[in-house]
């Protein structure tokens, strides 16, 4: 076992992991943050997307030891004192989730795109959000929700 320190959603977690534990497993099993979902565990579906530093990462393809000392953001850190933030509110209003399994990954990927702060064309929006798989809601409402926040009309 290796002792590492993750700063997750501004809270320090000193945890013990095996080198083979993915960041996703460490977040779920060691930090108790089960909002990060695991779908395919080989980098295809994007359900486990979290932000490491400022970048979206497939948390099934990064070992927890690689994130030692890094700041990580997960879906649990998005809310605004218990209330939806703009992106979550937009997902709610635009019916951008149905079963909700892909939603944490979609939200974190969209968070990166919104925070990037540069103009996003519709083509680029489609290209970026196509990184993650949704198998029930459909992408149209997800794109609409993210677009509404990008356009500053999220809440």
């Amino acid at each position: 076992m290796t002792r590492i320190s993750l700063r997750v959603n501004s809270v320090d977690h000193d945890i013990e992991v095996e080198p083979r534990h993915s960041l996703a497993d460490a977040l779920r099993d060691r930090c108790g943050l089960t909002g990060t979902h695991l779908g395919c565990e080989h980098g295809v579906c994007g359900a486990c997307t979290v932000l490491v530093g400022d970048e979206p990462v497939r948390a099934c393809l990064m070992f927890a030891v690689q994130a030692d000392g890094r700041a990580v953001r997960t879906v649990e850190g998005l809310d605004d004192d218990g209330a939806f933030n703009a992106l979550q509110q937009a997902f709610h209003e635009q019916h951008a989730l149905q079963c909700g399994y892909c939603t944490p990954g979609m939200l974190m990927l969209a968070t990166w795109l919104v925070e990037r702060g540069t103009p996003v064309s519709d083509d680029e929006l489609r290209e970026v959000m196509s990184s993650n798989l949704c198998r029930c809601t459909g992408y149209r409402n997800i794109l609409r929700a993210v677009r509404s926040v990008l356009d500053g009309a999220g809440s």
Binding site: G43, G46, T49, E55, P56, V57, R58, L61, M62, L109, E127, V128, S130, S131
Partner: peptide, 12 residues
């Protein structure tokens, strides 16, 4: 480059 997988993959 834009043909390589998806953006989060390309970032790593």
């Amino acid at each position: 480059a834009r043909h390589i997988a998806h953006l989060p993959i390309r970032m790593r």
